[in-house]
Amino acid sequence: MKKLIRNILGLALLATMGLTSCDKDDNMMNPVDNGPDFSGTYMTADQMGRPAINTVFVPSGMKDNFNVTPPSQMGAMYASAFADGLRALSPAYANPGDANALGLDADTFGSVLATDILTVSTTGTTTFYDGTNVLTGRNLADDVITVELLLIFGGEDFSENPGLTDDNVNANDKAFDTSFPYLASPW
């Protein structure tokens, strides 16, 4: 037993020496700076496609899991919970046949939202919604909350629940830049 321990210690010592000399060799033979170390494995902690999806639609016990579910699996896992959420949240989906201005009922809209990706056009206008284009991107200035409120509460023609469909904050508190990096300087 004692011998075994001594052997292990000896091996450990050898290993340490080996490592040390390796490092030394590296330094002597590779004077070139190898740059930063990017090694290792990185695991998803948070993710996001469209604004406010996890916060608004995912039930509290499922939020962490939603954040680490690949988008290709989200639809199957969350579509029905999202549809139930829409019906619970908004009188605009209360009656059979109720739909939003995109013509989507609670089940269909819930299914669309459950896969939390942002579609982006590479050929034209990029906007969350500008009255014509729908979900072709998201600009800094897009009033995404009002768009989402309209689609949740506004009914078929945006006329339902008028007190709930616009928060009346229509722009950011600082102007954006037209040039890179576009965002406003910090307060």
Binding site: P51, F57, K63, D64, N67, G85
Partner: peptide, 21 residues
């Protein structure tokens, strides 16, 4: 909706959206 909100824990765009992050 108020009941649902308690369950949903509505916050913002994605700010502090889930306990783990």
């Amino acid at each position: 909706a108020a009941l649902a909100a308690v369950g949903f824990g509505i916050i913002a765009a994605d700010h502090i959206d889930a306990p783990a992050v």
